[in-house]
Nucleic acid binder design. Structure first.
Length: 403
DNA sequence: CTGGGGATGGGGCCC
DNA sequence: GGGGCCCCATCCCCA
């Protein structure tokens, strides 16, 4: 575990790739436009962890049903391991794997944006709520006033009847529709537990419906379809498959409807049965997951996996100093540190840079209005990190904002 | 302490 | 499918 690197509690396999499709370079925008799902994900995950551990968290108020998610929660790994009956020394990755199988709704993430962090020194998981909320939301996430999720979306075998409408883009294939089948499932998760987890913002109750029509259905390329197979249904008569196509029942008659798996031809009497089959049993689906043998990550394509494996094998070595990199262009950038080459020239001053990103950051210093602005005092900053420091350091407006 | 530069990592997109 | 490139993010360091 690399110190300071985020530890991912979400499944990368489907959700990560899918949720980033069509949102190129707009991770921040993603959070801004999907705060409801983000908040829901975070709150559920925190609640679930809390229920698992009953741990004395370093900031326990964050777990209270009436708690404040505006601050990061720190969850001791030992407490989680203990509650999960894992080895006390189980790694975050081990915990992640366990949680992925027992609490699939925790995979409800936006790639990096929904990750928990891992503090190696304190050996705790840290929730990301403070960071992303303060930086990307216009309002603080406050917990629960009114229910926003139907419990049947989270209870085994009941999700078939869900009528909750959500944007297909928001859900990974492993998202909330997946059964929760942990023997350690907290009591309230067994029935209407999600009704304990409503969310409300400073502007009102959160809804899980799609906030941005422009991003819904605007993708006609086919690449952007992230329909969860069953999660995006709005009614029993309009099931969606993984490609977003309508999955209508086959052999329908007055007495019973049959749902047909287009991957292996098996049919089921209920949509939930079909969904469960596709989620956990259909071999043609499991074949689509490519696991990294070096770590826990899973990818939907071999190409993506190969690309990832390079981060382990580091095939690109610098002939001058021996330092290794995963990509050729990373090596190229590194070689510039030896040669002193700086091909990226600032058009406003004489400075030049070896890296385009650094030039971009530099260009911000020439701008009167910086890219990153404090939502409360309107002061602008050239970098997000500076804005972060500003807000963390006690912007009066920010303190007032989070209540 | 703040702001900025240097270096690097990683996923996605395009060709 | 792979290489190259883009963009975002982050850490470290220094003035």
């Amino acid at each position: 575990m690399i110190k300071g690197k985020p530890f991912d509690l979400s499944i990368k396999s489907h959700s990560h790739r899918q949720l980033n499709i069509g949102l190129k370079n707009e991770r921040t925008k993603t959070i801004q436009e999907y705060p409801n799902l983000y908040a829901t994900s975070q709150y559920q995950s925190l609640q679930y962890l809390h229920s698992l551990t009953s741990a004395k968290c370093l900031s326990p108020q964050n777990y209270s049903p009436n708690g404040d998610l505006s601050k990061p929660a720190l969850i001791p790994l030992e407490a989680i391991n203990s509650s999960l009956r894992l080895s006390p020394s189980s790694s975050p990755h081990h915990i992640s794997r366990h949680l992925q199988s027992t609490a699939p709704f925790m995979t409800f993430g936006f790639g990096n944006c929904a990750n928990f962090g891992y503090n190696e020194n304190k050996n705790v998981l840290t929730s990301p709520s403070l960071y992303y909320q303060n930086r990307h939301l216009d309002y603080p996430i406050s917990p629960p006033q009114t229910p926003i999720l139907r419990s049947d979306r989270l209870v085994p075998n009941n999700y078939s009847s869900s009528t909750l409408e959500t944007s297909p883009r928001h859900h990974s294939r492993h998202a909330v529709v997946s059964p929760v089948h942990s023997e350690y499932r907290p009591q309230y998760l067994s029935s209407n537990w999600s009704e304990h987890l409503p969310l409300k913002t400073a502007n009102g109750s959160l809804n899980i419906s799609s906030p941005t029509p422009s991003l819904n259905g605007s993708d006609d390329s086919g690449r952007g379809s992230v329909h969860s197979r069953g999660s995006v249904v709005s009614s029993e008569s309009h099931k969606m498959d993984k490609n977003g196509k309508s999955r209508k029942p086959v052999n329908s008659d007055a007495s019973g409807t049959r749902y047909h798996c287009t991957d292996c031809n098996k049919s089921y009497s209920t949509f939930s049965g079909l969904s469960k089959h596709q989620e956990f049993h259909c071999s043609t689906q499991t074949k689509k997951a490519f696991s990294c043998k070096h770590c826990e990550k899973v990818y939907v394509s071999l190409g993506a996996l190969k690309m990832h494996i390079r981060t382990h094998t580091l095939p690109c070595k610098c002939k001058l100093c021996g330092k290794a990199f995963s990509r050729p262009w990373l090596l190229q950038g590194h070689i510039r540190t030896h040669t002193g080459e700086k091909p990226f020239q600032c058009e406003f001053c004489s400075r030049a840079f070896a890296d385009r990103s650094n030039l971009r950051a530099h260009l911000q210093t020439h701008s009167d209005v910086k890219k990153y602005s404090c939502k409360t005092c309107s002061k602008t900053f050239s970098r997000m990190s500076l804005l972060s420091k500003h807000e963390d350091g006690g912007c009066a407006g920010a303190n007032h904002r989070v209540q």
